[in-house]
Amino acid sequence: MKPTRSMKLLAVALAAGLYAHLPLAGADALVKVDGSSTVYPITEAVAEEFQKAKKGAVKVTVGISGSGGGFKKFCRGETDISDASRPILEKEMKACAEAGIKYVELPVAFDALTVVINPKNTWVKELKVEELKKMWEPGAQGKIMTWNQVNPAWPNAPLKLFGPGADSGTFDYFTDAINGKEKASRGDFTASEDDNVLVQGVSRDVNALGYFGMAYYAENKDKLKAAAIVNKGSSKAVLPSLETVMAGTYQPLARPIFIYVSEKAMQRAEVREFVEFYLKNAPKLVKEVGYVPLSQAHYSQALKNFTSKKLGTGFGGTPEVGVKVEDLLAREAKL
């Protein structure tokens, strides 16, 4: 069939019409955010609402380069805000300092890791951090292969482990919190960068155990069971939930996640407005995307730190396990 003149006209009109009634970019205010994929859903939600509230006068872009990739761009001055699922590291602080980039560190939510088992698993009532260590430490590789090797009360059934791959921030934090050293883990487990694959794996095998972010557990509660965790030196088993994470009792597997705002970018009104909007709307939006919000007092303190330009990080370049958000916000900050 030969395209007729009227058909061509119709196509052009359709394309033009589609283009005309949509908001278009001009040379106007732009806020650039990049970084961690863990923080991404929160920043995406805030960006969406912020642009709606500003009726398109300010544009926000969000990329996913990972916490490390995000800091690289941030310290080159390419982005205004960096999403990070871990605090800035010493070498990144150095890179920023060399480029003259100063920043404010703002915790925006909790990310709680959930240890999950199959719903048909009847033997695990609670998991001690020591037991998790026995399963996951590098020395367990090829040795700890059955459940009763971890705890004699458990059955002689094969232990099938599922976890995120070594490039993930979740892997870094879990190994740090459980095995005491970042990236120290046994290697003979089923690893996937896609948490949905881990969900499938654990839901299909009675003998499976895995870990990933709480949002994935929350979406798959019918297929998985969360294990209650007993922290070192404690005797109380705590299940991951909004309340326990916010109260700080679900430890050591809950951590704050951050945004870093460049001081230079803070001179622009649209960046200030965006960050203020972020902290004010976080309680509602964070919950909506499956994460645990900080307490109202934390957000108010974070906002105060932001408006008073409290520059630097409270960590000094080394991530810590089990740090309290109020302590962190009150700490002396270092650039």
């Binding site: 283009y19 949509l22 908001p23 278009l24 970019a25 001009g26 040379a27 990049d34 991404y40 920043t43 995406e44 960006a47 969406e48 642009q51 398109g56 544009k59 926000v60 872009t61 969000v62 990329g63 996913i64 380069s65 761009k73």
Partner: peptide
């Protein structure tokens, strides 16, 4: 460095004023 979240379109290539074409 392509982005993931972007809720606006690039500027139109055809503009109402001279020179009618924009490469922005």
């Amino acid at each position: 460095g392509a982005l993931t979240f972007i809720a606006f379109l690039p500027p139109t290539p055809i503009s109402g004023a001279f020179p009618f074409l924009s490469f922005e």
